[in-house]
Simulated scan of single mutants.
Amino acid sequence: MALLLAGDIGGTKTILRLVERTVNGEMNALYEFRYPSGEFPDLVPIVQHFLTEAAIELNFAPEPEKACFAIAGPVVNNTAKLTNLPWVLDAKRLEQELGISRVSLINDFVAVGYGVCGLDAEDLHTLQVGKPRQYDPIAVIGAGTGLGNCFAIPEANGVKVFSSEGGHGDFAPRSELEFQLLKYLLAKHDIARISIERVVSGQGIVSIYQFLRDRKFAAESAEVGEIIKKWESEIGKSEKTVDPGATIAKAAMEKCDRLSEQTMQMFVEAYGAVAGNMAVSLLPYGGLYIAGGIAAKILPLIQEGSFMRAFTHKGRMDSLLEMIPVRLVLNDHVGLIGAAVCAASL
């Protein structure tokens, strides 16, 4: 038995989980707690506070042997500077100050890549069974605040996950309506190119809605319109009081607002096409996983079929993409699971 410490470290919140790894490789969560990151000067006091609380809860003083922290931001040589916090993290310093023999820092979406390999069947929804190959690459894509990408290569004792910045590639329109969307965004932002994540992300949902609204595709409902106007008035503020993307998605799933329905149709099709582009590039017969904060919340829309039609619509490559297993991640703690998987491999 080994004790592991896993963490999901963000600018707003820090989630820590103490995990017991049994001799047969099973991972059992012993204790978990969430902390407001901004109330602490560094990660070290959070971990110390967590271990003290865990000792009270578990009736023994836990001494993790290894730890892995998933960081919302770039990680270079096991160091990281968080975007929205004055924290500078270094794995070696954390080892010394926390008394943990091995500490690793990884990007939060790399943690998702490790996490998908540690999920149970009930944590996944199969969109396409395909013809899985055990030793072939695995791809992960996830729309949330941005658009995360990573891929994994199977190894003798698990997988090796590699980060990617594929979400910053160019948005490639596939229809006249998407070409109009591209031109709209170029003019609106006064920039020379549009990245994929400007369309396939939470912000992308809002951008598509604004495009359709401004093009008078359909009348704007009072309920959704009020949320959009409130959000637009808060642009530039660090804290937002509304979530327009969630409001649009909810209205679309309830089929109570035509503008929202068309917005989500465009979004889902663009998401499927981008996932298909990743699949064409990597041929991940080990599986392509749809993660991120949006997909599981709009599963009914994805199940309608346009996502997979856009995914496989690659001309002469259609038959190859039909062989790739496609699974949607339902467990929103997949990154924390991945941090534990990574810690176990240290």
Rank of each mutant, 00 (worst) to 15 (best):
G7S: 00
I9H: 12
L16C: 07
R17I: 00
L18P: 00
V19F: 13
R21Q: 15
V23A: 09
M27E: 15
A29G: 12
E39W: 01
P41E: 10
L43I: 15
P45Q: 13
I46D: 00
V47D: 11
V47R: 07
H49L: 12
F50W: 08
T52S: 11
T52K: 13
N59K: 14
F60G: 00
E65L: 14
E65G: 15
A67Y: 04
G73Y: 06
V76N: 10
N77K: 15
L85S: 04
P86K: 07
W87V: 03
V88K: 09
L89S: 06
D90K: 13
A91G: 12
A91N: 06
L98K: 07
G99H: 14
G99D: 09
G99E: 09
S104P: 00
G113M: 02
Y114P: 01
Y114M: 05
V116K: 03
C117D: 04
C117A: 09
E122C: 11
T126N: 01
L127D: 12
P132A: 08
R133L: 09
Q134E: 13
Q134P: 00
Q134F: 10
I138V: 11
I138L: 08
G142H: 08
G142W: 03
G144W: 07
G144K: 05
G144Y: 04
G148P: 12
N149E: 10
I153M: 14
E155S: 07
E155Q: 05
A156R: 11
V159E: 04
H168A: 12
G169I: 12
F171G: 08
R174E: 06
L181I: 10
K183I: 06
I196T: 14
S201R: 01
I205Y: 03
Q210L: 15
L212C: 06
R213Q: 10
E220I: 05
E223I: 02
V224S: 07
K230P: 04
W231S: 13
E232G: 09
E232S: 07
S233D: 13
G236M: 12
T241E: 11
T241M: 05
G245I: 08
I248K: 10
A251L: 09
L259T: 08
E261P: 02
E261K: 07
Q262T: 09
T263L: 02
A270P: 01
G272P: 03
A273V: 03
A273G: 07
A275F: 03
M278R: 09
S281Y: 08
L283P: 01
L288E: 11
I290Y: 03
A291F: 10
I294T: 07
A295H: 04
G305M: 07
G305F: 10
F307T: 02
A310K: 02
F311P: 00
T312E: 14
H313W: 11
H313R: 09
M323K: 11
V326E: 04
R327D: 00
V329A: 01
G335S: 10
G335W: 01
G338I: 01
A344P: 03
